[in-house]
């Protein structure tokens, strides 16, 4: 356990040193502030809670950006250290490979969580500071959005490690990571939409649609944040959500499954790697 924290601490320090933490926090803060002020302009005063608008905008932003940041952080973690030779030295110390991978996970997750909390927090803080009235239900949705964004980041960090532990070269890892990002963020949903259209208005069997939504972590995230409460009406996803048997517990469970499975596969693949 102590080894995991030692390695996590080193990752965070490296992240601070090479400006990863600063860059991602500023990026997320800048985008979320822009969205919350520009995005709220057209709604005017029609009784819609401003924070709910922000939640919808930020969730959509998260689906694109957080997986990308997570993959950028993680795809190099194992293959890069092996290629540079730092892994050899670290493993000659009394640490196991599982501790190395878990330590890196904790460290990278801390960086991403910091960036998300402070970047997105800036938007909420700005809204509150400008005197907008926000009801408690919106606050709780916002907190859900923050936590699930971190969770989505964790999913893609784990997927990035799996890529990093499975390939032989850093450049391959980069390419595969971009491919995975495109697949989950764009291609999967397009294909899903295409299927729904092709089915000619006949709803897919509910079980199948549920499964398809759970099989993509970004969709699970989308359903979790946009499928209920005020946000569902704003985003138009409420219609889908009503027809599925997915509840918050199931969606969060799916996201956790998406962390545990790739992470265990990454650990297994890493333990078989010859130094």
């Amino acid at each position: 356990m102590k080894n995991i924290l030692i390695i996590a601490r080193k990752e965070v320090r490296e992240g601070l040193r090479n400006r990863w933490v600063l860059a991602t926090t500023l990026l997320l803060a800048a985008l979320s502030l822009t969205l919350s002020f520009l995005g709220s302009a057209p709604t005017g005063n029609v009784g819609v809670n401003q924070l709910d608008v922000v939640i919808v905008s930020l969730s959509s932003l998260t689906i694109f950006l957080v997986p990308l940041i997570a993959l950028l952080l993680s795809h190099d973690a194992i293959v890069g250290e092996m290629e540079r030779g730092t892994m050899l030295l670290m493993l000659s110390y009394p640490v196991s490979r599982n501790q190395v991978i878990l330590g890196k996970f904790v460290g990278h997750l801390a960086i991403l969580a910091f960036a998300t909390l402070f970047g997105y927090g800036a938007a909420a803080a700005a809204l509150a500071a400008t005197g907008t009235e926000i009801d408690p239900a919106s606050w709780s949705s916002f907190v859900t959005m923050l936590c699930s964004s971190v969770l989505l980041g964790a999913v893609f960090i784990a997927i990035g490690y799996l890529v990093s532990a499975s390939v032989r070269e850093r450049s391959t890892a980069g390419g595969v990571a971009i491919g995975i990002w495109l697949f989950f963020v764009l291609i999967y949903d397009m294909a899903l939409l295409g299927t729904l259209v092709a089915s000619g208005g006949h709803a897919l069997p509910n079980g199948l649609l549920d499964a398809l939504l759970l099989l993509n972590p970004t969709d699970a995230y989308r359903m979790l944040n946009l499928g209920s409460g005020e946000a569902s009406a704003l985003s138009g996803l409420g219609g889908v959500a009503e027809h599925t048997g997915l509840n918050a517990t199931l969606l969060v469970g799916a996201l956790f499954g998406w962390i545990v499975l790739p992470l265990s596969l990454a650990a297994a693949s890493f333990s078989r790697k010859e130094l």
Binding site: K10, R13, E14, G85, T86, L89, S92, Y93, P94
Partner: peptide, 18 residues
């Protein structure tokens, strides 16, 4: 046992930012 071992690899590499 590695606590009582010291190892210097050939062409040693470190984490550059630290």
């Amino acid at each position: 046992v590695r606590q009582r071992l010291g190892y210097l690899p050939e062409s040693v590499a470190f984490h550059m930012a630290l």
